[in-house]
Every structure is written in structure tokens, then in C-alpha cells.
């Protein structure tokens, strides 16, 4: 990938992350930390491609670990975030 282009992506993504978070109320900080933890679980995709290109047993072993950990990050991150957010509800009108 073109290094300069990547630099622009880095810059814009950084501002996006900062902006998205800056208006979050404190009550959602824990679910949000957990939610952002889920989002970087997309590392799974990188792990899959690394394993897909692996040739020697060593590469396969490390690639396997990458996919295993990435999948755990994504699945676990989703479950705990969803569980926490499912509990937030406003007072029901009686």
C-alpha cells in the first residue's frame, strides 16, 4: 500500500475515533470500552490471511494462534458487550 495514502487513513481514522467517543456519557464507558475491544477483534481477518499464506509448520502454528486469539477477541467482545447493553433501559411508564 502507498505509505502516504496510509498516513492519510491513519490521520482520518484517529480523528474519527476521537470524535465518536467525545460525546459518550460516563454511564456507557464500560460497554464502550468493551465495544471498542470487540471492534479491534477484526484482527481476526488479518490472522486468517496470515494463516492462509503460511507454508512452513512454524508459520502455520503461529498463524493458527493468531486466528484462535483473534476469534476469541471478536466472539468474547461481542457477547459481553451485548449482555451489558441489553440491560440498559429507561424507566417504564406505568
Amino acid at each position: 500500500m502507498d505509505g502516504m495514502l496510509a498516513l492519510y487513513i491513519f490521520m482520518l481514522a484517529a480523528f474519527t475515533g476521537y470524535e465518536v467517543i467525545s460525546r459518550v456519557p460516563v454511564i456507557l464507558h464500560t460497554p464502550l470500552m468493551s465495544g471498542s475491544n470487540f471492534v479491534h477483534g477484526v484482527v481476526l481477518v488479518g490472522g486468517m490471511i496470515a494463516l492462509g499464506q503460511a507454508e512452513t509448520p512454524l508459520e502455520q502454528a503461529i498463524g493458527f494462534v493468531a486466528v484462535l486469539l483473534g476469534a476469541a477477541n471478536a466472539a468474547g467482545g461481542y457477547v459481553v458487550t451485548e449482555r451489558m447493553l441489553a440491560m440498559f433501559k429507561a424507566k417504564e411508564k406505568k
Binding site: M1, I9, A13, F15, G17, V20, V42, V43, I49
Partner: peptide, 23 residues
């Protein structure tokens, strides 16, 4: 993500990196 050439990883990673730093 940059090393693997996948922009989706770059975006997701850096967005979380910036958001996490602010948090």
C-alpha cells in the same frame, strides 16, 4: 493492517486506538 494491506483493519484499529486513548 498496513502490513497486510487491509484498510478495514487500519481503520478499525486506529479508530479504537484514538477512542481508547481518549477514554
Amino acid at each position: 493492517g498496513f502490513v497486510m494491506g487491509i484498510p478495514a483493519l487500519i481503520i478499525a484499529g486506529i479508530v479504537v486506538g484514538a477512542a481508547g486513548t481518549l477514554l
